[in-house]
Structures are given as structure tokens and as C-alpha cells.
Design a protein around this nucleic acid. Structure first.
Length: 462
DNA sequence: CGATGTTTAGTCGAGA
DNA sequence: TCTCGACTAAACATCG
């Protein structure tokens, strides 16, 4: 297979590439250093952007990677985000990516076991998958992203490129995941399916060295995503878990947000019907809600900005609670219930010994546990179950073929992934997974590349 | 005071 | 062309 041969060649090329001694960290977002115009780079920030190139970014003058320790996330006590399950989270990501690739990319890059293939599938039409890959793998110049570039030409150019920055680029390229998908990964990966903001930060930084830089920037985006998207639900801390900030969990129906197989852009934003109703309530001119609320101010803008169409959607948790006559105590109960649920699942897990089963069911089981244990919470919790965009009865969050819950590992998948990753065992970057058994066994490069940074051809697809 | 959370505003690109 | 999802910046409020 010609494409696969080329991919192998590329893989070989980069596997042999030494790390740049320049210390340049590829960071498309870091225009703070030399460009204060946020608009000047918006279009080039995202890996979903065709014009994204690592070379370009590299020339913008990057700071050295900031020490991880200065991040926001220092955890007290149990920390799911730093657990060994990080590895499985990314294995899981791989699994889902593979599946998605198979379905979404007819040319067979799905077999690469890389989100790149998937990424290609959601790239602009007319852009070859290979070209899409090259954007992310930072293997070449802007030319690589030219639509219609033959793969062979891409490869030639990639080979012609000065190779000394490739390795570094790998590890510091912006991952091909939206913030929403990153958050989802983090939460899904946590045994309790709940994380604090700091833990989400830490998960992301652990996994992706890219995000050890410019933390203020992307962390602001993370916070925005959490608040803005209905798929994330804030769960207050209980008195027995004091600390700063709430826990964040996934909306029970958000499981197939990435059904289209693209982790950069969902086909449709998840919207909670209940929240949507509240929005409409606040939008209504006859609403009794006082006009001093931010929503009132927002409504004014909605008349003028089509963007308000989708910005209209985030009522704050207090409002949500108050509307339904429940307060933080209710959510605290929900919180406790989720723990209880998970405890029971753990029990079930130990009985069945099926990691796969355990994790796939968690979201639904949380809801069902809430149902069973706290009927009074139904109004709050199950009201979240009204999928706006999903016809009921087709897929549950976990059985959808593209469900992110399918990212979660099975033993067999893990084995395959271990094999896959063993092919890429030379990563020398900052350890994203201090506790990862797999990372320890395979080396972080294999791990990191398994997330989608390797252009492996012909590896197992799941 | 810094972290966390919410909201507004604007830009960009993908895709219908 | 238009809609919509994502990203970024920033202001502001709240909380520990």
C-alpha cells in the first residue's frame, strides 16, 4: 500500500529524528510573546485550521516549556487524573478514534490507529487526510497542507525539511482535540467521573506537553468551555470534601457528543433541554426574571449577534437550581449519590472483572443510581437527560459507536494498544504520566504518539 | 489574593 | 452565503 509505505517512511524518519536543541516549543497559541493582537492568529491556532503549520509557529519565537509544577493543579488527596488510568484514557481515546476513522475515512487511514486519521476525516473537504496529518504532526512546511498535495510530494517535502525539530514538534504540537473533548477525556478517565478544575488542568498538562505552556490562555478556555457547554455539569463539593471549586462531571446524555468521529468539532452542540427552557424563560420579554441579571443583558445582544444563538445557552447553576426549587444541597446529594453509584459499580466491576463493562456503564449507571437512591433528585438530574439533538432510542451514551465512553479500554484493546505503542518507544519529552504503568513499560513517546502523534500505518484499528 | 466560575464579544473555519 | 461549533480574550463576580 503506497500510502502506508509512505507513512512508515515518515514514521521512520521521525523516529530517527533527534530532539531539537533549540528548546523551541512549538506553540501556535503563543502569540503573547510577540503579538498582542488576538485576531491575528485566531485562524491559525487550531489544528483544525488548514493553515496551521508547525514551522510557522516555530518561527514565532516560543518560550521554553514552563515547569509543570507551576500549573494550577496541585491536588490534595486522591487524584484520579494522575492515576495510572491516564494511560487507559488515552488508549480509550485511541480506540474511539480508530473506530471513527474506520467509519469516517473511506481511504483507510483509520487503520493507522491515530486520531490523525480521524482528524483528517473532519478536516475541510478537499484536504487530503495526509495533508491534515502533516499539519498536526508538524512534519513539514505550510506546503504540506496545500489541498491536493500528493502524498508523495508531502513526504518528499517532509524529508527535505530540516528534521531537527520534528521530535520536539511531536511532543509540543497542539493535540487534535477540542477543549471539550479534552475535558471529556479527563472526566471520563476519572474513576469517579468527576474532576475539579485543577484536576482537569492537570490531566491535560500531564497528557499533552503542549498545554504546559500558555496556561493562562488555554485554561481560560477550559473554564469557558465548562461553563458554556451544557455537556458539563458542576457538582458542588460536599462538606466532607472541602476545597476550592466544584467538581465537574459530564451530562449523562453527553456521551455521544463526538458521534461524528471528530474530536475537534462536534456536529452539534449538546444542549440540555432544561437549561434551554430556562434560557427561553429568560429570553422572554415577559419574564419575571429581573433585568439586572446577566441574562437580561445578554438578551439585548442576542438581537444583534447571531452568535448569541448559541451563546444564549448557559444559565448558571444557581439559577438552574433555584428554578427547580433545589439548591446546592441537592447537587451535593447528587454528588454523594454518584460516589455511591460508583462504589457499587466498583463492586460490580470486581465481580465481573470487566473494566470495559464498568466504565462504559458508568454514566448511565450514575443516572440510574440517582434514580434509585434519590428519587427526589430526578427533577434535577434526569432533567438533564433530555437530549435535544438526539432522537431517543437510538443510542445510549455508551453504546453509540462513536461514544467517547468507547474510548474506555477493554483488555483486548489495551493489549493491542500496548502493542501499538511499543512501536513508538522513544519519546523523551516531559513525562505526561508519572504513574502510568504503560508509560513506564513503553516509554512516553509510545504513549504520547499513541494519542495520535504517530503516523503509523497498518496498525490495528478497533 | 489567587483560583474558580460566568458572561460577553469577537474571530475563524467547516459545512449545509 | 449563512449557520454553527470552537477558540480566545477579557471583564466581572464569587469563594476559600
Amino acid at each position: 500500500m503506497k500510502v502506508e509505505d509512505e507513512l512508515r517512511a515518515m514514521q521512520k524518519l521521525y523516529a530517527e529524528t533527534p530532539i531539537s536543541s533549540s528548546g523551541m516549543a512549538v506553540n501556535p497559541n503563543n502569540n503573547n510573546n510577540n503579538n498582542n493582537n488576538p485576531n491575528a492568529n485566531n485562524g491559525n491556532l487550531s489544528p483544525m485550521t488548514p493553515s496551521y503549520t508547525m514551522n510557522t509557529m516555530g518561527m514565532t519565537g516560543m518560550p521554553s516549556v514552563s515547569p509543570q509544577g507551576n500549573g494550577a493543579g496541585s491536588f490534595g488527596g486522591g487524584n484520579g487524573a494522575l492515576s495510572a488510568s491516564n494511560m487507559s484514557a488515552m488508549n480509550s481515546a485511541m480506540n474511539a478514534m480508530n473506530g471513527n476513522c474506520i467509519t469516517s475515512t473511506p481511504i483507510g487511514y483509520g487503520s493507522m490507529g491515530s486520531p490523525l486519521g480521524n482528524m483528517g476525516s473532519c478536516m475541510a473537504s478537499g484536504m487530503g487526510t495526509m495533508a491534515s496529518m502533516s499539519q498536526y504532526t508538524s512534519m513539514g512546511s505550510r506546503d504540506l497542507t496545500e489541498p491536493g498535495s500528493p502524498n508523495s510530494a508531502i513526504l518528499q517535502r517532509a524529508r527535505a525539511e530540516k528534521p531537527t525539530t520534528y521530535r520536539r514538534s511531536y511532543t509540543h504540537a497542539k493535540p487534535p482535540y477540542s477543549y471539550i473533548s479534552l475535558i471529556t477525556m479527563a472526566i471520563q478517565n476519572n474513576p469517579h467521573k468527576m474532576l475539579t478544575l485543577a484536576e482537569i488542568y492537570q490531566f491535560i498538562m500531564d497528557l499533552f506537553p503542549f498545554y504546559r505552556q500558555n496556561q493562562q490562555r488555554w485554561q481560560n478556555s477550559i473554564r469557558h468551555s465548562l461553563s458554556f457547554n451544557d455537556c458539563f455539569v458542576k457538582v458542588p463539593r460536599t462538606p466532607d470534601k472541602p476545597g476550592k471549586g466544584s467538581f465537574w462531571t459530564l451530562h449523562p446524555d453527553s456521551g455521544n457528543m463526538f458521534e461524528n468521529g471528530c474530536y475537534l468539532r462536534r456536529q452539534k452542540r449538546f444542549k440540555d433541554e432544561k437549561k434551554e427552557a430556562i434560557r427561553q424563560l429568560h429570553k422572554s420579554p415577559s419574564s419575571s426574571i429581573d433585568n439586572h441579571s446577566p441574562q437580561g443583558k445578554k438578551d439585548l445582544h442576542e438581537e444583534h449577534h447571531h452568535h448569541r444563538d448559541h451563546h444564549k445557552g448557559i444559565p448558571d447553576a444557581h439559577m438552574l437550581n433555584s428554578v427547580h426549587g433545589k439548591d446546592a444541597d441537592t447537587l451535593a446529594m447528587l454528588h454523594a449519590t454518584a460516589d455511591l453509584c460508583l462504589a457499587q459499580q466498583s463492586h460490580s466491576h470486581s465481580q465481573h472483572g470487566t473494566h470495559h463493562h464498568h466504565q462504559q456503564l458508568q454514566q448511565e449507571d450514575i443516572a440510574s443510581m440517582v434514580n434509585r437512591c434519590h428519587p427526589s433528585l430526578l427533577g434535577d438530574y434526569h432533567s438533564m437527560h433530555h437530549l435535544k439533538q438526539e432522537p431517543s432510542g437510538h443510542y445510549t451514551p455508551s453504546n453509540h459507536p462513536f461514544s467517547i465512553t468507547r474510548l474506555l479500554p477493554t483488555e483486548s484493546k489495551a493489549d493491542i494498544k500496548m502493542y501499538e505503542m511499543s512501536q513508538y518507544a522513544s519519546y523523551n519529552g516531559i513525562s505526561p504520566l508519572p504513574n502510568s504503568h504503560a508509560a513506564a513499560a513503553l516509554g512516553q513517546d509510545s504513549y504520547y504518539q499513541s494519542l495520535g502523534y504517530h503516523p503509523s500505518a497498518g496498525t490495528t484499528s478497533l
